[in-house]
């Protein structure tokens, strides 16, 4: 089994992702090897990395009014990713909104001070 995994809060995510990534001496996976060979530096900010998405779903059977048979309705769950130059994918589904809020807040503060 895999070792226990420490959790990272939203406010620490960018700091973790932009730090020099720990290199395991046991790094044998293809992506790790890739990262070793052409080592581009980690990104300076997550927002520098292009935004990508994977759409997943929550499917449940529902019986609409008037219908005889229940239908399966799949509600989309869009998961956002920042794909950085060093091949690292960072899921930012919750982070994007949080970051936008932070930027807005700091913008409001700056607007007040200037």
């Amino acid at each position: 089994m895999a070792p226990p995994i420490p959790l990272i809060s939203l406010s620490d995510l960018e700091q973790h992702a932009t730090a020099v990534q720990p290199q395991s001496p046991f790094a044998t996976s293809p992506t790790q090897r890739l990262r070793k060979n052409n080592t581009p530096p980690p990104p300076r900010a997550l927002t520098d990395c292009p935004l990508k998405e994977i759409t997943q779903y929550k499917c449940n059977a529902e019986k609409p009014k008037g219908a005889k048979r229940p239908v399966v309705i799949c509600d989309p769950v869009v998961r956002l990713f920042r794909v950085c130059a060093n091949g690292m994918h960072v899921e930012t589904t919750a982070w994007e909104e949080w970051k936008a809020g932070q930027l807005q807040q700091s913008g409001v503060k700056e607007g007040k001070t200037t």
């Binding site: 895999a2 070792p3 995994i5 420490p6 959790l7 990272i8 809060s9 939203l10 995510l13 973790h16 395991s24 046991f26 790094a27 044998t28 996976s29 790790q32 997943q56 779903y57 929550k58 499917c59 449940n60 799949c74 509600d75 769950v77 998961r79 960072v90 899921e91 589904t93 919750a94 982070w95 949080w98």
Partner: peptide, 29 residues
């Protein structure tokens, strides 16, 4: 969906360990 906490993206993240991949079904529920 409101009756429970199923398949909601949370405010925490983690790093996938070396030599592993993280998998999820498309039907998260």
């Amino acid at each position: 969906a409101e009756d429970g906490d199923w398949a909601n993206v949370k405010n925490q993240a983690f790093r996938v360990p070396e030599g592993h991949c993280w998998v999820a079904g498309d039907n998260l529920d």
